[in-house]
Design a protein around this nucleic acid. Structure first.
Lengths: 146, 146
DNA sequence: TTATATGCAAAAGCTTTGCATGGGT
DNA sequence: ACCCATGCAAAGCTTTTGCATATAA
């Protein structure tokens, strides 16, 4: 749904990978392209393996790891101990709402919450390098957003 | 450092466990008592095993699981894919600051942040059942707290 | 040509489970 | 006496690693 983000990330990923001396093989190419399309929120290695004809488990895990190490992916460890990744875009930051009814995760952004986190870090005497918020609950009435 | 919390939780745990029909064996007793003392922030199954003479791996994992299922522990899955637990106290809620220099996690509370999360949930149209915040960074200057 | 990417299979690490025995109530 | 708790050993799952081969640059 966010074409601009997709393209920007793909270009950034290619640039970063090749300037790190990595070469583009069939597996990595397929994985990176899939992530650009489908990796905007919390995908697992298994998701990639299931949906991609191309790529062995080792390639998938290695590529995911490498992209994470280069700062191209964020990594989380979900409620079940399985690693989840998503595209890291410096221009966009989001948090996660987990719907208890379905177990599904939805990304959301909230500027006021963002400011509150920065303020809390200041009060703690911490120079912030990253932060994550997970909200769990149920949609109370009519959904307001997309 | 919080004696009241410790005692309250221990009493609550005993009550909840026995009303769930569970019996107190040597392993569970030792584990629950250790958690009441040392489980206020992000301990792993391995921590329990290392520090306790009493209790086999299966007892530790089973007890931790059971306490989680009964709502007596919170469970998180750390950056390394290892499950971390901490005492769940309805009267006290805290978040986590992870110091990038040491990797250590420290609990903190912040009422304003709490309110910001509630406000964000309201804006999302979500009835909140839980939430977690992780802040990552470095202590910027002189440490202010204990 | 030379270092890197890939895939297979094996290993590693955390956690869960089956089962026989011990123990609480 | 009955059922739950415990511990051992084995199995399960996700993820990592070793190694031989294929391939990008």
């Amino acid at each position: 749904m966010d074409q601009a983000l997709r393209d920007r990330w793909l270009a950034q990923a290619d640039a970063t990978l090749s300037s790190a001396g990595r070469r583009a093989g069939a597996a990595r190419t397929a994985i990176v392209e899939w992530l650009a399309r489908e990796g905007q929120c919390l995908v697992t290695a298994q998701d990639v393996l299931d949906r991609l004809p191309q790529g062995s488990p080792s390639s998938v895990y290695r590529t995911l790891d490498e992209l994470f190490a280069l700062g191209l992916l964020h990594r989380f460890h979900g409620q079940d101990g399985v690693a989840r990744y998503e595209i890291a875009d410096p221009l966009r930051h989001h948090h996660h709402f987990i719907d208890e009814a379905s177990g599904a995760a939805r990304p959301f952004t909230d500027d006021e919450l963002e400011r509150a986190i920065e303020a809390a870090a200041r009060r703690l005497g911490v120079r912030l390098t990253g932060h994550e918020v997970v909200i769990r609950g149920r949609r109370s009435t009519n959904g307001t957003q997309s």
